[in-house]
Every structure is written in structure tokens, then in C-alpha cells.
């Protein structure tokens, strides 16, 4: 019985795989074999998993594996050539570039999606309409004097503000503190932290005077339990949404997330096929898993960048982090 079910399942899979192949290029892809080893950020993982899942129908014989060691943990393996691709929720750090150079690993940096860091409060909180970046900074900076909501704006109630944030090892925390407080990791220490963003959602949903931040997908799937706060980054208050994150108006709290491909591994046809497939299908797939696609132009730049095997990071100096991806990636 079991065998019959397995056989019919496999037959179905084979049929599905064959159905995908129409012309000659596709049948070539279907014959591809080999391994693609991926590790890195758990934030990027859902996208890479979705791409790997779809890639199965194109090149069923390529064995793709994806780990979740975190951006930093993944780079430790990537920089000594143990993996082919690293998922990263932040740009590569200078120390990691040095390590890669030591082991003669060259990398191609490719952005794949946006994540809009969302600042949220409890739905019962009826007084907060928006927060400016300066106010966020007063709340979150190291040694902050803000204890109650009244300390932020005088007309707000004198109720203790409970703070929730992702764990200090996460890329989300790094990006938020760097953007708001000016230095990655610099932050007051009296907040509830969790590596699991679902715990933050539960915490804020159960606490009327809470404030917290995390990735947009976690707000998007819990709209009934949370209230979003519009952020004023000097151009008026903007709420994060697929549109405002995609066109860059939700600034400065939207960040690009990346894959880093080893130039040596990219010489292998299965890695080359996988990365091209990734960049071509990313726009559709990132929406499925709760992220926001990059502008079309940026995907085109990324495909061109990978095609010409341009190595190195586009973030050459501190000021580059405030420029848009389209500007940075333009050939």
C-alpha cells in the first residue's frame, strides 16, 4: 500500500517536472546535476526556500540545501568556502570581507527583497498617530530618559511604556539601531527581547501601553492584533505597506536583504542556473512569503551584475547606506 502511494507520488512529481520542460534550454536545465549549499539568515530563509522549491520543478536533480545559522554564522562558513551562497539580512561587514579575502573567496552581492521594519503598538492605544525618527531615537537611545508615553509627547498619558524588540544578534536589531541611534547595536537595555518575533507579537498584543518593532511580515500576518505606527523620516508620516516599501517612500526603516554568491561556486552550472532563477523569480516569490519585492530595475541590475560576475560590495562608505539600491547598483 505504502509503496503504491509512493510510486504514484513519484510519478506525479516526474510528470510535473516534465511538464515544465518545453524547449531545448529547459531540457538542458532538467538534466543539470550537482549541489547548491546555502546557509545564513533566518530572515532571508523563507525566500530562498520558496526559490529552491520552485527550482525543483525546473532542475529536479540539483540538490539544494538551505541552513539557518544566522547572517553572521552563515558568513563564517561562506568566507572559508564551505557554502556556495549566503543569505544575509544586512550588507557584509569589513571584518567579514577581510576574512573572505584571506581564504581567497570572492563574492557577488545581490539584493533580493525589501523588509520594512515596522513599529507597532497595541490596538487599544488610541493616542499614537505617528512617531518621528527623532522621537524613536529619544525612546531607544542608550541611557534614554523616556519612561512613560508622556516623556515622548507632553499630551500623551503618563503611562509606563513597555518596550519590545528582536534579539540583539538579529539583523533587524542591527539595522534599527544603526538607522535610529546612529550606531549598530547601540540601544537602551531595559526592553523585552526575543529571537522569536512571534513572542514579540504576543507581548505587544497583550499590553496596552507597549511599543515594539520587527519585520513587516510579522505585522502583515497579525493586523488584527496590532496597530501600525506611521514613521516620519522628515517627509511626513508614512505607514509601511507593500507600495511604500517598494517605492522607497517608507524611509529610513526599510532595508534591503541579500544573497552573497561565491564567485568560485558561480562557475558551476548548477549554481549559475540557481542564482539566475532566483533573481528572475524573486519578484513573484517574495510576496508569497511576506516580503516586498525590489523595484524591477534593481532586479535587472542584479541579473546584469551576476552575469558579468562583478564582485565586491556596493557599500563602499558609510554614506552609501543612505542611497537607494537603484543608484548603488546602476552599472
Amino acid at each position: 500500500m505504502i509503496r503504491v502511494v509512493m510510486c504514484s507520488l513519484m510519478a506525479a512529481l516526474l510528470l510535473a517536472a516534465c511538464g515544465g520542460g518545453g524547449n531545448e534550454g529547459d531540457s538542458e536545465k532538467a538534466k543539470l546535476e550537482g549541489n547548491v549549499r546555502i546557509d545564513g539568515s533566518s530572515t532571508v530563509y523563507p525566500i530562498t526556500e520558496a526559490v529552491a522549491e520552485e527550482f525543483r520543478t525546473v532542475s529536479p536533480r540539483v540538490k539544494v540545501s538551505v541552513g539557518v545559522s544566522g547572517t553572521g554564522g552563515g558568513f563564517k562558513k561562506f568566507c572559508v568556502a564551505e557554502t556556495d551562497i549566503n543569505d544575509a539580512s544586512r550588507p557584509i561587514k569589513p571584518s567579514e570581507i577581510e576574512k573572505a579575502a584571506e581564504h581567497k573567496v570572492e563574492f557577488i552581492e545581490l539584493p533580493v527583497a525589501f523588509d520594512g521594519i515596522s513599529v507597532v503598538v497595541n490596538p487599544k492605544n488610541d493616542f499614537v498617530d505617528h512617531l518621528s525618527v527623532a522621537e524613536l531615537r529619544r525612546i531607544w537611545e542608550p541611557g534614554s530618559k523616556v519612561r512613560s508615553w508622556k516623556d515622548v509627547r507632553a499630551q500623551w498619558p503618563d503611562r509606563e511604556m513597555k518596550l519590545y524588540a528582536p534579539g540583539v544578534d538579529s539583523g533587524t536589531f542591527d539595522y534599527f539601531t544603526e538607522t535610529v541611534n546612529g550606531k549598530s547595536g547601540a540601544c537602551r537595555s531595559d526592553f523585552s527581547a526575543s529571537e522569536d518575533d512571534n513572542v514579540l507579537v504576543t507581548g505587544i498584543a497583550g499590553d496596552q501601553y507597549a511599543l515594539g518593532f520587527f519585520g513587516f511580515a510579522y505585522f502583515d500576518h497579525n493586523r488584527d492584533k496590532l496597530k501600525i505606527v506611521a514613521i516620519d523620516g522628515s517627509k511626513g508620516p508614512i505607514e509601511p505597506s507593500n507600495k511604500t516599501i517598494n517605492d522607497g517612500t517608507y524611509s529610513p526603516l526599510s532595508r534591503p536583504i541579500f544573497i552573497y554568491v561565491s564567485a568560485e561556486a558561480a562557475k558551476r552550472p548548477e549554481v549559475d542556473a540557481f542564482v539566475n532563477f532566483y533573481l528572475k523569480s524573486a519578484a513573484a516569490l517574495v510576496k508569497d512569503v511576506g516580503y516586498v519585492p525590489l523595484p524591477e530595475k534593481v532586479y535587472e541590475f542584479a541579473i546584469a551584475r551576476f552575469g558579468s560576475r562583478r564582485t565586491g560590495t556596493v557599500y563602499k562608505s558609510e554614506s552609501d547606506k543612505s542611497r537607494t539600491l537603484a543608484e548603488l547598483m546602476a552599472p
Binding site: Y45, A52, E53, V64, S65, V66, G67, V68, G73
Partner: peptide, 26 residues
């Protein structure tokens, strides 16, 4: 296992001791 590089997504089942692998708790 996260440290020794166990995968979470894996499109195949292990076929030898040298195969990459995923595990249930992960």
C-alpha cells in the same frame, strides 16, 4: 546541529553518511 551545518530546507533525503541532512527539531 545548527552549528555543524544541518540544513532546514533540503530537497532530498540523505543517501549516505556523507550526505547533507535536515532534522525534525530544526
Amino acid at each position: 546541529l545548527i552549528l555543524v551545518g544541518a540544513a532546514v530546507y533540503i530537497g532530498f533525503t540523505p543517501d549516505s553518511p556523507m550526505s547533507e541532512f535536515a532534522v525534525l527539531p530544526l
